[in-house]
């Protein structure tokens, strides 16, 4: 009746979402009074897996092999389900990343488990897990419990605190699982130009909407983003206009994000957009229309011409950094 966390790595590196998931799994196991197991799949990850000790893992079960160098749903789901069975997992946690969202349902199907996707809070009530997850892109949320089956839960990145690493390195134990004949393979990976952090993982996002007026004007947002370490997002209006790629869209038919800081620039705040960013910790709106709905959810707003305000903000940050650098 244990809790199993499947920690995600890519190219041998464990990601922050993995640290968040391990930390939350440890907390949950403690509350349930259940043993915690942590597992990882990959090749050449035995060394890096020890770092999960900092987040509450005492031991990491590692499924190693060339078959796990690249992520493939079928093989990974088979291996993950096998590990879950061996440790008698009643609860399986993964990060709700592109990998976790693909893998979790396949593991749940193999285990006869229920799926609770994209959780933003987990609690133990009456001795059982109660998960909170957004629905209608964040316009509402549901609290969900098991109806008697084991649960596979995915945790939204950036929501659960990973904290600073504290514990000693974890022991690493190799686990052998039977190979799974795969009928799919990765034939290529194209890295998006200049983009290493995804919107869903970003801690600061600067989004531009219809008020940007055209694709060329996003330059001022990119400059601001560079100064403050942000990723640039977009509203549906600007994506549908062809100004920005679909992968940049925040909102109901785009991405749902929860950064520490969200700057909405020239975005009026349609209900579908607000749904996708309202769980951001701090929201700033810059818009020339004081009646724009975005100001209702913003913590701080500036009413004004974005073409004046944004460059001024970039300049102010740059000066502050220079002053701090000199001090």
């Amino acid at each position: 009746m244990s809790v199993l966390v499947l920690a995600e790595q890519r190219q041998g590196q464990f990601r922050r979402a993995a640290f968040e998931t391990v930390r939350e799994g440890a907390r949950l196991a403690g509350q349930l009074g259940a043993p915690l197991h942590v597992a990882a799949l990959g090749s050449g990850i035995e060394k890096s897996a020890a770092a999960l000790g900092g987040y509450g893992a005492t031991k990491v079960l590692v499924v190693e092999g060339d078959a796990y160098t690249a992520y493939l749903g079928e093989a990974w789901a088979a291996a993950a389900a096998e590990v879950a069975k061996r440790v008698s997992a009643r609860t399986l946690l993964l990060a709700a990343t592109s990998l976790g969202k693909d893998l979790a349902p396949q593991v749940a199907a193999r285990l006869g488990a229920g799926l609770v996707a994209d959780c933003v809070a987990l609690a133990v009530t009456d001795g059982e897990i109660e998960a909170t997850r957004p629905v209608f892109a964040g316009k509402a949320r549901v609290r969900v419990r098991s109806a008697g089956a084991p649960l596979v839960l995915t945790l939204r990145p950036n929501v659960f605190p990973a904290g600073n690493p504290t514990g000693p390195p974890a022991a690493v134990e190799r686990v052998e699982v039977p190979p799974c004949p795969a009928r799919s393979r990765v034939v290529g990976v194209e890295t998006a130009a200049g983009r290493t952090v995804d919107l869903t993982e970003a801690s600061i996002i600067v989004s531009g909407g219809r008020g940007m007026g055209g694709p060329e004007n996003y330059r001022i947002l990119e400059e601001l983003a560079r100064e403050i370490g942000a990723v640039v997002g977009a509203s549906r209006a600007s994506v549908d206009a062809g100004w920005r790629p679909h992968s940049d869209q925040v909102g109901q038919t785009g991405k749902t994000v929860s950064p520490n800081l969200y700057l909405a620039v020239g975005i009026s705040g349609a209900i579908q957009h607000l749904a996708g960013m309202r769980t951001s910790k701090v929201i700033v709106a810059i818009n020339k229309d004081p009646e724009a709905p975005i100001f209702k959810v913003a913590d701080y707003g500036i009413v004004g011409d974005l073409f004046e305000v944004v460059p001024a903000l970039t300049e102010a940050v740059r000066k502050r950094k220079a002053a701090e650098g000199a001090a």
Binding site: G112, A113, G114, L115, V116, E130, P134, V135, G138, K139, A140, R141, V142, R143, V144, R145, S146, A147, G148, A149, L151, R278, T279, I283, P290, F295, K296, V297, A298, D299, Y300, G301, I302, V303, G304, D305, E308, V309, A312, L313, A316
Partner: peptide, 27 residues
Amino acid sequence: PRTRVVALELPPVRPPGKVVGKGKEAV
């Protein structure tokens, strides 16, 4: 079903924010 919804609720209301000011003077 293997899961059951115990509540559907609206998200917590964000506390009202403030307009810091107008134009670049507010930066």
